[in-house]
């Protein structure tokens, strides 16, 4: 079995085994440390930078495709829409929105829970009501809905 290990790998393994107990931190030169620090900060900065784009700032409620109201996502409130078969209740909290109750038989839009990202949408088809979030970022503006 040992013969099947490629020569170069075997040499490296043998060498690693006999490499002595050089402490790992001695393998880092000053420039390496500086570069690692910069890389850590860059990576940490990339999280808020790249994941802020999908934040929603308003909820758009439509009935039969017609705009009913736009609710800003900066305060808690409830909103009732009368649709084709009853009343859909929409709840808004800072940064998110959901359909609380709906007369539809299968309750898909209710079970979707809180919507948090821009362009997320809950469709209460039986009642002809939709709830959609919109964000300030125009980056994905060309898309009707996005799923993650």
């Amino acid at each position: 079995m040992k013969d099947r290990v490629p020569d170069g790998l075997r040499e490296l393994l043998a060498q690693a085994a006999g490499a002595g107990q050089a402490a790992w931190h001695t393998l880092l030169k000053p420039g390496d440390r500086a570069l690692l620090l910069a890389a850590v900060m860059l990576v940490a900065a990339s999280y808020p930078l790249l994941w802020r784009g999908g934040v929603a700032d308003r909820a758009i409620v439509k009935r039969d495709g017609q705009l009913v109201t736009e609710l800003a996502l900066n305060a808690s409130r409830k909103y009732e829409v009368t649709g084709a078969i009853g009343t859909t209740v929409i709840e808004v909290q800072p940064g998110r929105a959901r359909v609380v109750s709906d007369p539809g038989p299968r309750q898909y839009c209710v079970q979707q829970g809180w919507l948090t990202r821009a362009n997320a949408v809950a469709i209460c088809a039986p009642n002809h009501v939709t709830l959609q979030l919109a964000g300030g970022s125009g980056r994905n503006g060309g898309y009707d809905t996005l799923n993650y």
Partner: peptide, 8 residues
């Protein structure tokens, strides 16, 4: 090479 090693 004085300041940067394989890690960089």
């Amino acid at each position: 090479p004085r300041f940067f090693g394989p890690v960089s």
